[in-house]
Design a protein around this nucleic acid. Structure first.
Length: 840
RNA sequence: GCCAGAGUGGCGGAAUUGGCAGACGCGUACGGCUUAGGACCGUAUGUCCGAGAGGACUUGUGGGUUCGACUCCCACCUCUGGCACCA
């Protein structure tokens, strides 16, 4: 007979709701704890079993910490802007607001049915104008800020020092160029047949259907995240994040140290600046390569090469960034006819253009050192360019030697690197470049500025207007939020702009300060925008005057534990950290970083070990699981499957297993009529039972602290296996056990707690304490190894005297048998564990 | 190719600082209870040899350090995730 979870679970969910059991209020008498789940995008498909994994883990942790006296903030909300709702709207003409509301209702029902202890008073939705008002407000703060490299922080644009003698137009341009949000011509994925811009993730889908997607330049809003590259990289060190994620962020930011140097163009006064991480190899630079887009290409190209160069550049322009990089085919390039001089060797070297050099990284130009760079080597081989060895240690007839080594062939009248190991050679060369004013030390990042415009309807509108003279103006804060207008069609305008561009009455507006006609920006913000700061809004979700009250922010921040999928390892977490730092610089926040500890839950695979997907027919619906086995079983199984971070397959048998366990828990305490079992009495525990109880408290406590929920559950199973059929079960032991189980199976344990005679919810009962002395055992099983093999075991009292123990070991029958005719060379005693004999 | 993480029974997975490999669960087999049960209870269960006592082998592969290695070191193989011409 199964325990009556269909009655118990709704009963306690209602109780928690009605008593607002999990409402969080600032309370300076308690230590605070902010535990955050990555909020979901409420898709039409509803919750899948992957969502509750992280949610259950944080819920257990929160419930445990409340019992330990922490004031816990544990909120939930909806990341509801995004492409799927908009695409659905295009097909059905149903407003995305409506479908979003429906999807949120489904998600909320499903999440609530799991008994998660969220403070629902703090629920937020990124598509709510009351929320996105503040997303727009933060955008304005970014827009109205510049990065002061001297102070190494963002400052209000009003504090930007202005050069004297600028015209009004120049002033405008100067300021625009310094804002942290700026307009730039950037390539988009343009599909002529659809007349729309595609998101990167859509490109494959449409090209597979035979549509063409090409690169097209468009003015777009960019956020100057590169200004923060150094701090975003440096502050990673203070985060308690999985090393893998830190590494991924580090790679994404891509810091590299090197030098820049000027190479004079022959027959011109100008020079070309290159960036290299290997200044020590400059004597081996035998040619130069510019990115096809490099502005000096025209000037360098001699007339007889003009035609090929132009053709090559046109070709490169056609190719999308994907094609240029992902194809990984043979390198191509063409000679410009121009020459530059290697400043180290003073010899002329040819200038080529090739699309393996990226315009947007470094200076868009490289000195090619084929002897010590694989790419340059490949290129030089193909086009018969000279290869010179300047670092000894490799065989240049076979491959480039890219490792560190010792310099050779590296001297001129002023400097010699010969004999120097690579690190010193680098330093020596940089010093020489700086002395001769040829170049200087330089640090570069791979990180690019953040393309922040989307040509979409279902996103936050920018609080910006274009005046008739073409200038951009920020709307005053008092005009926020800029609401999304309703429209008949959600289809993009066909010109590359979003559907917003077709809503004339919305686009046409006036400058609120001058009354002059103006047009609204029709781009919208990317989905990342709302998720960049939601953790701050939870702190003060109903505040209409500020995005977040400062005292409250000070009390709750930073987020102590953040749990979510690893798919957000780079972008979401990097963008959120960036916004956080901007707000910190501008004085709105008290912490440098947002998320102190981060944990990624692993993916749950289908029962067949494949990724869950409709096409495989292996998707597990949480509704079905809860209906069949109850929410507590679902929660428990999700935690019992294995370590939180691991990828692991679903198993219906496994759910049945933990469900059986919960039934056993019920039967351990409740009789067939639903009353407390007669075997539960006010009696003291035997020494053995008390030991098991204290061992269980200890193991479960430490396991929850370390988020090792699977082994905590194992320990509870051991406890129940021992106690289930005891004739007498001490009341206190049963209570302690129910407390231990309560973070995992809150509904069942609330019910049992009530049956054990309590009127109050179990949620804030003090967590059981263990007594280390009571976990100790009196006898240990001593293992005897002879030449590394276990030959005997016998019980001995704990902490036995070593000599006595040795005597016992040598007297043991099994040991004697193996010692027959041999000599004991050495005895190793590991206290309370084993005795190891070496014999000959 | 590069970076990070991981390889343990039929399956999911356990194993402080090196110290009895396989906890706990699933599955399987046998037994009990039962009109019946796919409910429940009990016993067994890494592989091989052996009637048994006992023995041999066993944590991806090969080597090393050690009285002792899933754990540390070296080389290799496989899988997962990320990056992918970033000079």
């Amino acid at each position: 007979m199964a325990y009556p979870f269909p009655e118990i679970e709704p009963k306690w969910q209602k109780f928690w709701d009605e008593h607002t059991t999990f409402k969080a209020v600032e309370d300076s008498t308690k230590p605070k704890l902010y535990v955050l789940d990555m909020f979901p995008y409420p898709s039409g498909a509803g919750l899948h079993v992957g969502h509750p994994e992280g949610y259950t883990a944080t819920d257990i942790y929160c419930r445990y910490k409340r019992m330990r006296g922490y004031n816990v903030l544990h909120p939930m909300g909806w990341d509801a802007f995004g492409l799927p709702a908009e695409r659905y709207a295009m097909q059905t003409r149903i407003h995305p607001r409506i479908t979003t509301q429906e999807n949120v209702a489904t998600f909320k029902r499903q999440i609530k049915m799991l008994g998660l202890s969220y403070d629902w008073n703090r629920e937020i939705n990124t598509t709510d104008p009351k929320y996105y008002k503040w997303t727009q407000w933060i955008f304005l703060k970014i827009f109205n800020a510049w990065y002061d490299n001297n102070l190494d922080k963002a400052r209000p644009i009003s504090e930007l020092p202005m050069p004297v003698g600028l015209t009004e137009k120049e002033r405008y341009q100067y300021i625009a160029n310094h804002r942290l949000a700026y307009l730039a011509e950037m390539p988009v994925n343009w599909c002529p047949e659809l007349g729309t811009v595609l998101a990167n993730e859509e490109v494959d889908e449409w090209t597979e259907k035979g549509y063409t997607v090409e690169r097209r330049m468009m003015k777009q809003w960019m956020l100057r995240i590169t200004a923060y590259a150094e701090r975003l990289e440096k502050d990673l060190a203070e985060l308690d994040w999985p090393p893998g994620i830190i590494e991924m962020q580090r790679n994404w930011i891509g810091r590299s140290e090197g030098a820049e140097a000027d190479f004079p163009i022959q027959g011109s006064k100008k020079s070309i600046r290159v960036y290299t991480t290997r200044p020590d190899t400059m004597f081996g630079a035998t040619y130069m390569v510019l990115a096809p887009e490099h502005p000096l290409v025209d000037e360098i190209t001699s007339s007889q090469y003009r035609k090929v160069i132009d053709e090559y550049r046109a070709q490169a322009k056609q190719k999308s960034e994907l094609e240029r990089t992902a194809l990984e085919k043979e390198k191509t390039g063409v000679f410009t006819g121009g020459y530059t001089m290697n400043p180290a060797t003073k010899k002329p070297i040819p200038i080529w253009i090739a699309d393996y050099v990226i315009f947007t990284y470094g200076t868009g130009a490289i000195m090619a050192v084929p002897g010590h760079d694989e790419r340059d080597y490949e290129f030089a081989r193909k086009y018969n360019l000279p290869i010179v060895e300047v670092v000894a240690g490799g065989d240049l007839s076979k491959a480039a030697f890219i490792d560190d080594g010792v310099n050779v062939n590296s001297s001129n009248d002023e400097v010699s690197l010969n004999g120097l190991p690579t690190p010193q050679a680098k330093e020596r060369m940089i010093r020489w470049l700086e002395q001769k004013r040829i170049g200087e030390r330089s640090i570069k990042y791979k990180l690019r500025d953040w393309l922040f415009s989307r040509q979409r309807y279902w996103g936050e509108p920018f609080p910006l207007i274009y005046l008739e003279d073409g200038t951009v103006k920020a709307l005053p804060e008092s005009h926020l939020p800029v609401l999304l207008p309703d429209t008949e069609s959600y289809k993009p305008s066909g010109t590359g702009e979003s559907a917003l561009a077709t809503v004339d009455s919305w686009v046409k507006t006036v400058d609120p300060e001058t009354g002059k006609p103006a047009r609204r920006e029709t781009h919208t913000m990317p989905q990342w925008a709302g998720s960049c700061w939601y953790y701050l809004r939870y702190i003060d979700p109903r505040n209409e005057k500020e995005f977040c009250n400062k005292d409250k922010e000070h009390y709750w921040m930073p987020v102590d534990l953040y749990v979510g999928g690893a798919e957000h390892a780079v972008l979401h977490l990097l963008y959120a950290r960036f916004w956080h730092k901007v707000l910190y610089d501008l004085g709105y926040l008290s912490t440098k970083e947002s998320f102190k500890k981060l944990v990624n839950q692993g993916t749950i695979l289908g029962e067949d070990g494949r990724k869950m997907s409709k096409s495989f027919g292996n998707v597990v619906n949480p509704d079905d699981v809860v209906k069949e086995y109850g929410a507590d079983s679902m929660r428990l199984f999700e935690m019992f499957m294995g370590p939180l971070e691991d990828t692991k397959p679903w198993s219906t048998r496994g759910v049945e297993g933990v469900h059986r366990f919960l039934n056993r828990v019920w039967r351990m305490i409740v009789d067939e009529d639903g009353n407390l079992l007669a075997s539960i009495k006010e009696e003291p525990l035997s020494v053995e039972d008390e030991r098991l109880l204290h061992q269980s408290i200890k193991k479960i406590t430490l396991d929850i602290e370390n988020l090792n929920f699977n082994t905590a559950i194992s320990q509870m199973m051991i406890f129940v296996n021992e106690f289930l059929n005891k004739e007498v079960k001490p009341h206190s032991a049963m209570e302690t056990f129910v407390l231990l189980l309560s973070p995992f199976a809150p509904h069942l344990t609330e019910e049992l707690w009530e049956k054990l005679g309590h009127k109050q919810s179990i949620a804030y009962e003090p967590w059981p304490q263990y007594d280390e002395a009571k976990t100790a055992i009196e006898t240990v099983e001593m293992v005897v190894q002879i030449n590394g093999k276990v030959r005997s075991k016998f019980p001995v009292p704990i902490n036995m005297d070593e000599d006595e123990l040795k005597r016992l070991v040598l007297a043991d029958q099994n040991v004697k048998r193996h010692l027959d005719g041999k000599r004991v060379v050495k005895i190793v005693v590991v206290k309370n564990k084993l005795v190891s004999l070496v014999v000959k």
